[in-house]
Each structure stands twice: as structure tokens, then as C-alpha cells.
């Protein structure tokens, strides 16, 4: 099953979701050697794995927990379709969705 990941330079990558050992979208992106900062390594405390999920796929994902919302408060370019990639289990990823990594910032 493939998804599309658009990196911070705007380049699209096709990523296979079933092959690897990644448990969440952040690990999946990192394992595909696509740059995603993910400073806290999945602890939901840093907001540096911020991604935009294709709008139509949002209802298909488990909604963000309050913890994720609070950490997203630390991000800047937050939109209605913002999520933290580390909080989205690979098993919940709908086939063919488009994920865009949010701009990095210091």
C-alpha cells in the first residue's frame, strides 16, 4: 500500500506502508530517508514532526488526543489539517493519501 509524502523541498515521494517496522507515520517517513526533524523521537512533546494530511483523509484517522493538540500549540504553521506524524499509527493510514511535511522553523 502506497502513500505520497511531500518533503520540505516540495518533492513528492511514494512510500510503502506495509514493508517496514515503523509503528507510526513519523517513523515511516524517517525510515524512507525523508527529512523530518522529530526531535523528541515520538514523545509528543516537540511538534517537529508536524504534517498536513489530505483533507479528505482526515475523518478516516483517529482524531487527535488533547495531548497532541497541546503539542501542536507549539507549532507555527498550524492549519485545520495539521497533525503530528508520530501520533498516527501506520495501521490507520488510508491507501493513497497525500501527506505534506510542514515547514521547519527554529
Amino acid at each position: 500500500m502506497l502513500i505520497t509524502v511531500v518533503d520540505q523541498q516540495g518533492q513528492a515521494h511514494q512510500v510503502e506502508t506495509q514493508d517496514g517496522t515503523a509503528s507510526n507515520l513519523m517513523e515511516l517517513i524517517a525510515d524512507a530517508n525523508i527529512n523530518i526533524r522529530a526531535e523528541c523521537a515520538g514523545g509528543c512533546v516537540c511538534a517537529t514532526c508536524h504534517v498536513y494530511i489530505e483533507e479528505s483523509a482526515l475523518p478516516l484517522l483517529p482524531p487527535p488526543a488533547e495531548d497532541e493538540e497541546c503539542t501542536l500549540d507549539l507549532a507555527y504553521h498550524v492549519r485545520a489539517n495539521s497533525r503530528l506524524a508520530c501520533q498516527i499509527p501506520v495501521t490507520n493510514l488510508p491507501a493513497g493519501i497525500n501527506v505534506v511535511i510542514a515547514p521547519d522553523w527554529q
Binding site: 526531535e39 507549539l74 507555527y76 504553521h77 515547514p103 522553523w105 527554529q106
Partner: peptide, 11 residues
């Protein structure tokens, strides 16, 4: 740790 903590700047 991860380095020295500084406030995130407005981008």
C-alpha cells in the same frame, strides 16, 4: 541532551 533550549522564533 538535545542541546541548549532557546525560545522558538516567529518564522
Amino acid at each position: 541532551g538535545g542541546g541548549s533550549f532557546n525560545p522558538r522564533k516567529l518564522p
